[in-house]
Computed example of a mutant assay.
Amino acid sequence: MVAIQNSSHTLTSETTLRDIIKTIPTTYFEKKPLRAWFSVLFSVIAAGLGYVSIAFAPWYLMPLAWIFTGTALTGWFVIGHDCGHRSFSNKVWVNDLVGHIAFLPLLFPFHGWRFKHDHHHLHTNKMSEDNAWYPFTIEEYEQGKGLVSNVYKLIRTRFWWIGSIIHWGNLHFNAELYPERQRDQVKFSYRLVLAFGAVIIPTLIYTVGLVGLINFFVMPWLVYHFWMSTFTIVHHTMPDIAFKDKEHWHAATDQLTGTVHCDYPAWVEWLCHDINVHIPHHISTGIPSYNLRLAHKCLEENWGEYLYKTKFSWELMKDIGDRCHIYDSEKCYKTFAEVDAANS
């Protein structure tokens, strides 16, 4: 569902990201320590309430406690996300410290994610460059026949919600995937995560048993990855949003029109600090999460007809899972059935 409205600016091949950024007031880029630390306090309290609910909920309410806690922990990721983009604090060491602390309960390596995520922002929806939910070409799909293509089929259809787990395990614990200059930081982050896991998991088993480990860690962690998978696939994947070859990719056009604004239930938006108000974030990563809605309003006023807006629903996820499979330069995507039929 694309929202169409009048715009005061026209998007052309000459438009630059700087031109779009200039339509957003500079005050929306300012870091406000009180707002930033209030977000931290809010997420700490929310997660604390979630863990209390797990401790005292009867068995039939436990799924609700898992969902609430995992969603609150997703808010921790968003705080770390601001830190990774240096939009939490003006001090690098504060961003790194808070980012690592926010990511630790999620067993997520901060620097490894930060470097890969920065690459995603530089090459959003660019084939062979973007590392977030990019679609296989027919050639990649055929070459990967077997385990790779079968896993790809799973996460592009009804099992999209495990995509984040595969991305987490595949990219962030191998320093060889990073340039030499980044490897020491990558190693520091994943070693810290491994050390944290080596302490917290046995401690949970010792204090609350295997059932407690599942209740307090595994299930909220899976809910967190459900939201990570859902948010990130929806951010740039729609049947009519194209990935493009390098020669046809244009930074301003593809960041503005290739990013999706998706409305979720209010409690999800609150707990996750408006991360799904995502278009302004791809115009500039310097906008703190607490200013995303203000920046989005400016984009609506100035570039409204180019914004892709939708609302979360299971029907939306079904549509993505049914249609957004294999890259096609002419119509964005081909389905697995179309590709398999053509090659049979």
Rank of each mutant, 00 (worst) to 15 (best):
G146M: 04
K126D: 02
F173I: 04
A132M: 14
A65E: 06
F217H: 09
W221P: 00
T12K: 11
I326H: 01
H325E: 04
H225R: 05
S13R: 14
R86H: 13
H235M: 09
V151K: 09
H282F: 02
S284R: 10
A72Q: 02
G212Y: 03
L204G: 07
S284V: 12
T203S: 15
R191K: 15
H120Q: 10
I326M: 09
A341Q: 15
N302F: 00
H121A: 03
R35D: 11
N6C: 13
L192D: 01
H235Y: 05
T16A: 10
D319F: 03
H100M: 12
D254M: 07
R156C: 13
F217S: 05
I101S: 08
T15G: 12
T16Q: 12
L106Y: 02
E30A: 14
A132H: 13
K318G: 04
F173H: 08
M219S: 10
Q182A: 09
K32E: 14
S39V: 00
V193P: 00
L154H: 02
I200Q: 06
W133M: 06
R183D: 05
D245N: 09
I200V: 15
L64Y: 10
E330N: 15
P239W: 05
K311N: 14
C298R: 14
I326K: 05
G146T: 01
W267Q: 06
L147G: 06
F38R: 15
M228K: 07
L177E: 07
V52M: 10
T157V: 09
L316Q: 04
L292G: 06
T27K: 15
I326P: 02
T15Q: 13
P58Y: 04
N131E: 15
Y264M: 10
V268D: 07
H281L: 11
V208H: 09
W160K: 02
A72E: 01
K32V: 14
A46G: 02
